[in-house]
C-alpha cells in the first residue's frame, strides 16, 4: 500500500519537474534580482513588447544571491548584485562583458553613476538604482541638530537608536569617525575601531536591516542609521523624519545589472536591460521604490515631490564613497561584531 503511494507520488514529482523543464524555451529570461525591486507592470510590459517571458527569481540580500549563484543550479541570464559583489564577480571572471550595440539607451544614464570603482571600464555592469546610508532623525522628539555619526552615537540617545544589522556598515561608521577611508579594513584599524563600536553597541536599541523604518514609525526609537530607501519611505509617510548624510562621510551603494557566465539567453538579457533604461519604464520603478534613479532622462519625468525627497535625492553634492570588494576581511568584521554584541 505505502509503496504504491510513494511510487505514484514520485511519478507525479518527476512529471511536474519534466514539464517545467520542457517549457523553458529560448523566449525566456531567467532574472535573479532583489525581491520587490522590479515592478510586475515592468515585467508585463517587457513581455508584451518583446514576447519574452521573464522568470523573476528573488533574493533578499546580496550575500544570499552570491551563495546561490556560486552553488549553481539555475542558469541565470541576468543578475542584480550590489556594487561590491559585482566587483568580486568581475575579479573572478564570473561576468560576461556587455554588448553596448544592443543597449542604445545606455546614453540615458547620468555620468556620475558610470565608471564607478567597482567597474572602472564600465564593461560589465549597468546601474539600476542607487542609495546612501545616513541618519534619520524624528525631529518632533529630537530637537538638537544631529549632523554626523558622532552626534548620533551620543550617550544621551541611549536606547533610542536603530541601526542596520550589518557589521560592515557599523565598522564603516567607526572608520569615518576615526578619519580612515571606509575600505581600509585591516586588523590595525579594526582594533582602533573596537572601543568605539563597543560603546555604540550599548546605545543601540535594535539592529534591523530589513525594516528599520518599523521601529522609527512606531516611535520605539527616535534616531536611526539606515538605508536611504528606508529614510525615503519614512519621509513620504511623515515629513518629521529628516534624513542627513553624516558630515564625517557617507557611503553610497549602487545595485547593478550584469550577465553572469553560463547565461543561456544573453540577447534577452540585453533587451531587458535596454527596456529598463527607457525613461518611462525607469519612472515606474521610481514611483514604486524611492531610491536614487541614475537615469537622467527618467528623472525629468519625476514629480517635484519625488525629487524633493532628501533621502532619494540629497541636496548634498559632495563626493560619496562606495564599498569595494573586501576579500576575506569580511570574516574579521563578522567576528568583531559578534564578539561585541555577545558582550552586551
Amino acid at each position: 500500500m505505502s509503496t504504491r503511494i510513494v511510487r505514484s507520488l514520485v511519478g507525479a514529482f518527476l512529471a511536474l519537474t519534466f514539464s517545467l523543464a520542457a517549457s523553458a524555451a529560448s523566449k525566456e529570461l531567467n532574472l535573479f534580482a532583489w525581491s520587490e525591486y522590479v515592478p510586475q507592470s515592468v515585467l508585463d510590459g517587457f513581455t508584451k513588447s518583446t514576447g519574452i517571458k521573464v522568470n523573476y527569481e528573488t533574493f533578499a540580500s546580496g550575500e544570499e544571491m552570491l551563495a546561490k549563484l556560486l552553488a549553481g543550479g539555475t542558469a541565470y541570464d541576468l543578475i542584480q548584485p550590489p556594487d561590491y559583489i559585482a566587483e568580486a564577480l568581475i575579479k573572478n571572471k564570473l561576468l560576461v562583458p556587455l554588448d553596448y550595440k544592443k543597449l542604445p539607451r545606455f546614453k540615458n544614464l547620468l555620468p556620475a553613476f558610470l565608471k564607478m570603482p567597482h567597474d572602472p571600464e564600465q564593461k560589465y555592469t549597468i546601474p539600476y538604482m542607487a542609495s546612501t546610508v545616513g541618519i534619520v532623525v524624528n525631529s518632533e522628539r529630537v530637537k538638537e541638530p544631529v549632523t554626523g555619526i558622532k552626534d548620533l552615537f551620543s550617550p544621551k540617545y541611549k536606547g533610542r537608536i536603530v541601526t542596520v544589522d550589518d557589521g560592515r556598515e557599523l565598522v564603516t561608521a567607526a572608520l569615518y569617525v576615526l578619519g580612515y577611508p571606509l575600505n581600509d579594513i585591516n586588523a590595525k584599524n579594526l582594533k582602533e575601531a573596537r572601543p568605539l563600536l563597543a560603546q555604540w553597541i550599548k546605545l543601540i536599541k535594535l539592529f534591523d536591516s530589513d525594516s528599520p523604518k518599523t521601529a522609527l514609525l512606531n516611535g520605539d526609537v527616535d534616531l536611526g542609521y539606515v538605508w536611504g530607501g528606508e529614510a525615503a519611505l519614512l519621509w513620504n509617510e511623515n515629513k518629521k523624519f529628516i534624513y542627513v548624510l553624516p558630515k564625517e562621510g557617507a557611503h553610497q551603494f549602487v545595485d547593478v545589472l550584469a550577465v553572469p557566465k553560463g547565461a543561456k539567453n544573453s540577447d534577452a538579457a540585453h533587451a531587458f536591460i535596454d527596456y529598463l533604461l527607457r525613461p518611462e519604464v525607469s519612472k515606474i520603478i521610481s514611483d514604486e521604490f524611492p531610491y536614487t534613479n541614475p537615469n537622467g532622462e527618467a528623472r525629468k519625468l519625476l514629480s517635484p515631490e519625488q525629487l524633493a525627497n532628501p533621502a532619494s535625492y540629497p541636496k548634498d553634492t559632495r563626493k560619496l564613497d562606495t564599498f569595494r570588494h573586501l576579500g576575506d576581511s569580511g570574516a574579521m568584521i563578522d567576528e568583531l561584531i559578534t564578539d561585541l554584541k555577545n558582550a552586551k
Binding site: 531567467n30 520587490e36 544570499e64 551563495a67 539555475t74 530589513d210
Partner: peptide, 24 residues
C-alpha cells in the same frame, strides 16, 4: 526554500520576506 526553489516554485514566505523592505 530559497536555496532549493526556482522562479516558478517560489513560495509565499520568499515573497513576504522580500516585501519587508518596501513595507508589508
Amino acid at each position: 526554500t530559497f536555496f532549493t526553489s526556482s522562479a516558478q516554485s517560489a513560495t509565499l514566505p520568499l515573497l513576504v520576506f522580500g516585501m519587508a523592505k518596501v513595507g508589508l
